[in-house]
Simulated assay, not measured.
Amino acid sequence: MLVAATVGNGLLAGVFFAFSCGVVPGLRRVDDLSYVTVFRAINGSIVNRLFLLVFLGAPIATGAATALHLGAARQGTLACLVAGLVLGLFSFAVTAFVNVPLNNQLDAAPIGDAQQRKEARDRFERRWNRWNHVRTAASTAALLLLAIA
């Protein structure tokens, strides 16, 4: 269970890291229409069975691994698991309550003219990027703690 938790959290940290280091800097260089079009396409493609399996499975596996270590003789392991679980759940919450709603707002935004595209991007980009960096840090820290455990 701990291996599944570690791999799942690692995959999520990698996705968020890839956005922070590659996707976001690349999209920063394009015009508003390209930005909104590409981000909408990403939003539509990332919600798939495999991603959802990892996104939902990682916190479940981490919770199960933590529960299996309750009362264990190695309290250091339990402390790392609990901290990893908290950070993983925090990253999950950021995604569910900040990034996904922002994705939905961008998907629903009118973009018929240049001003609407600029406004849609302006309402989305800075906030989404900031919270993506937060969830990247949290999920990476969770991965580290689970690896230590």
Rank of each mutant, 00 (worst) to 15 (best):
L68E: 14
H69Y: 10
Y35F: 15
A142N: 05
R130S: 15
V7T: 07
A137T: 06
T95Q: 09
I111R: 05
R49F: 12
N104M: 13
L81S: 03
P101S: 09
M1H: 09
A96H: 09
L85H: 03
A72D: 12
L68A: 13
C80G: 03
L78N: 01
R126L: 12
N103W: 05
L87P: 07
A58F: 08
L70C: 12
N129C: 14
N103F: 06
R28Y: 15
V7C: 05
R126G: 07
K118W: 12
A73I: 03
F19S: 04
V7I: 14
R29F: 10
F16S: 01
N103K: 06
D122N: 09
G84D: 05
D32I: 08
E125R: 09
F90T: 15
V7L: 14
L144K: 01
R126N: 08
G14D: 01
L89Y: 06
N132D: 03
D113N: 15
R49W: 15
L102K: 08
R121W: 00
R127L: 12
T77Y: 00
F97D: 12
G10H: 01
F19W: 12
V98G: 15
V54W: 03
T95G: 14
G8D: 02
N132W: 00
L33F: 13
T77P: 01
A73W: 00
R117N: 04
R40W: 04
L33S: 15
L2N: 07
S139H: 02
A64I: 13
N99H: 08
V86E: 07
L27K: 03
N43G: 12
S91E: 08
D32Q: 07
H69N: 13
G10Q: 02
L53G: 12
T95Y: 09
V7Y: 00
G26V: 09
L89N: 08
L53R: 02
F19P: 03
T66G: 10
F39M: 15
A93I: 14
C80R: 01
R127E: 04
L70D: 09
S20N: 11
L50G: 10
G71I: 10
T62S: 14
V98M: 13
A73M: 08
A114M: 10
V82E: 06
L2G: 13
A138T: 09
A61N: 01
G44R: 04
A4T: 09
I42T: 05
V15L: 12
A137I: 11
L53Q: 02
W131E: 05
V98S: 15
R135C: 04
S20Y: 06
T37A: 13
R127M: 07
R130M: 15
L2K: 08
G14S: 04
A64N: 10
K118G: 06
A114K: 08
A147K: 01
A93D: 13
E125T: 02
T140V: 09
Q116N: 05
T95A: 11
N43E: 10
R117T: 06
N43P: 08
N48A: 12
